[in-house]
Design a protein around this nucleic acid. Structure first.
Length: 559
DNA sequence: CCTGATGCGTC
DNA sequence: GTCGGAC
DNA sequence: GTCCGACGACGCATCAGG
């Protein structure tokens, strides 16, 4: 059944609404694929990008710079409602988009007529929003968006908001979008999926699929592809038991993952989320240019001094930097450790077994701040444990263990690469406040603020929810409601009573928490109902762990 | 001119 | 980065 | 077995507003 194209944003919103309302995956696919068939090319591309929550390709370096706060201002302006009602509505829904719909139905200001936008028009305005910068730009962004909202129905406003926050929450995950594209244009799922993973754009994939050109989606120099991801295992034993064969073993470096492309005399470095970060690492770019080949490398940039790695926090001062001067370059020296290769002098290599790819890397001559990451072959539990210990001694994060026969599976977290790292320590802390969740956690206080003792007073040191099961979350939630001292809407201040054990991978100095410290990767291990709050840990223990960690770094520097 | 709020991207 | 949960 | 959403910490850039 073929009808006239309906490229409107309203139709898009209605489709989203139908997709959200059904649990059935097949149904979702049917709805979306039927919809995609009836779009013209440009709108098809936009629709797919919006479904996937990725408005602009990350490598273009263009950002909306519109977040919660700006959207709240816009909704206030558009609706004429006061903050109390606005915030209540947002809390009620736990999703800004859902709230926007209700807010617009209650608006006191109404436009004379509602303009009908198609997807391309909305997209063009979003691009404008992203492009305005400089003084008054926040005002300008709000003005453009307010204009859009004013002419939209509540349903459209809901999905515009969801697009802007990047959280669609309609149960249409990337796999289903790919399936819908395959279905709409009568293609094989695997071919569509492979194309998508290679070129990293749902919209472009849809166009290729539509015209039967999926084979044109290739690994292309200077355009980022997805990174291969690793899984985590708990122990050396688990790893050797799982594989029962010889494994490639590397140190796990605590830096940033990069994909380095070189084509002729052009070098581009991309981050894990496909942002171009070349400008942040000029000395690495310079040394990459000295390599007389075309290539795509996968590796890690690490802060590195006197033959030893520096902590991630040092490297972090060089990230997101727009202006890189000689001072920062000399203060925080970098190394690039190359550990994989996807393309070399005209040949895609990502389907080749890892061990063969390693051989290609080993033949390349690196100079300056670039090295090939060393690896060993291990097969016994004891060997893995020994390497793990050695890794920590040298100041690395743990180990990566990789299946030597595996291809580079672009964009997948297959069980071919395994990371092995250990928690640094745990603390018993006291819950002092709880914050509301979003989306599927909208109904509950899901996020717990916790404290340690400092001279008889409880001082906050972090927040966490992760680690508890849904059941435990509900139980804690009920208990916290009884312990509430003050309800601030988003946040509940509670009488200190519940003790939890929190694991973490590091302690950092912090000015965001009262204790002056914060935890890296905090997660809740268990609820310690066997402990009273007097038995919770103190700032002295925190300081001791912090010093222990620091002395390890210091030791490394002095060697 | 400085500071705090906001947004974003890295782990 | 972390984690639990849904399929 | 795999994918996914809901969350943690930090630092840098930018802009609004005193």
């Amino acid at each position: 059944m073929s009808e006239a194209h309906d490229n409107s944003f309203l139709a898009f919103s209605q489709v989203c609404e139908r997709v959200k309302s059904t649990m059935s995956k097949n149904m979702k696919i049917r709805i979306v694929s039927e919809y995609l068939k009836n779009l013209d090319d440009e709108n098809l591309k936009v629709a797919c990008d919006l479904f996937s929550g990725q408005i602009f390709p990350p490598w273009e370096g263009i950002e909306l710079q519109v977040g919660y706060s700006t959207l709240l201002d816009i909704l206030r302006e558009v609706s004429g409602l006061n903050d109390k009602i606005l915030v209540e509505t947002i809390i009620k829904h736990g999703d800004l988009g859902e709230a926007a719909e209700e807010i617009l139905t209650k608006r006191t200001i109404r436009p004379l007529f509602e303009e009908k936008y198609d997807l391309v028009q909305v997209y063009a305005r979003l691009r404008k929003v992203a492009e305005v910068t400089g003084k008054g730009s926040v005002y300008e962004k709000k003005k453009i968006l307010t204009g859009l909202y004013l002419n939209m129905t509540p349903l459209e406003a809901k999905y515009l908001t969801k697009v802007l926050t990047g959280e669609m929450r309609i149960g249409l995950v990337s796999g289903l979008i790919i399936e819908s594209i395959a279905e709409a244009f009568n293609r094989v799922f695997d071919e569509v999926n492979e194309a998508f993973l290679l070129i990293n754009s749902v919209g472009e994939t849809a166009i290729l699929a539509k015209y039967g050109k999926l084979s044109e989606a290739k690994l292309v120099l200077l355009r980022p592809t997805n990174f291969m991801l690793a899984e985590s295992m708990q122990s050396a034993e688990e790893i050797v038991d799982y594989f029962r064969k010889e494994l490639v073993c590397e140190f796990k470096l605590d830096g940033v993952r990069v994909q380095c492309h070189k084509k002729g005399d052009v070098v581009k470095i991309f981050s894990r989320k496909a942002n171009e970060v070349s400008a942040q690492f000029p000395e690495i770019v310079e040394d990459l240019l000295k390599i007389d080949h075309d290539f795509i490398f996968d590796g890690e940039v690490l802060a590195f001094k006197n033959g030893r790695p520096l902590p991630f926090s040092k490297l972090q001062t060089r990230l997101q930097r727009k202006y890189v001067d000689e001072k920062i370059v000399s203060e925080i020296p970098l190394m690039l450790f190359v550990y994989d290769i996807l393309y070399f002098d005209g040949e895609p290599l990502y389907k080749m077994p890892l061990i063969e790819r390693k051989k290609v890397i080993e033949k390349i001559e690196f100079t300056g701040r670039i090295e090939c990451l060393e690896y060993t072959l291990v097969s016994k539990k004891e060997e893995v444990e020994r390497k793990f210990f050695e890794s920590l001694e040298l100041g690395y994060e743990g180990l990566m263990l990789k299946d030597p026969s595996s291809a580079y599976t672009v964009g997948k977290r297959g069980k071919y690469w395994i990371k092995l790292k250990k928690e640094l320590d745990t603390l018993d802390v006291v819950i002092v406040a709880a914050e509301r969740g979003h989306g599927k956690r909208a109904e509950i206080f899901s996020d717990y603020v916790f404290s340690v003792w400092d001279n008889g007073a409880l001082k906050t040191i972090g927040k966490a929810y992760s680690g508890l099961t849904d059941k435990e979350l509900l139980e804690v939630n009920e208990r916290l409601k009884d312990l509430a001292i003050k309800d601030e809407g988003w946040r509940l201040i509670v009488r200190p009573e519940i003790v939890i054990e929190v694991a973490f991978n590091g302690i950092q100095k912090s000015d965001r928490h009262e204790s002056g410290f914060a935890l890296r990767f905090p997660r809740i291990k268990r609820i310690r109902d066997d402990k009273s709050i007097d038995e919770a840990d103190t700032i002295e223990k925190v300081k001791a762990i912090y010093e222990r960690q620091k002395s390890l770094e210091g030791e490394r520097l002095n060697k």
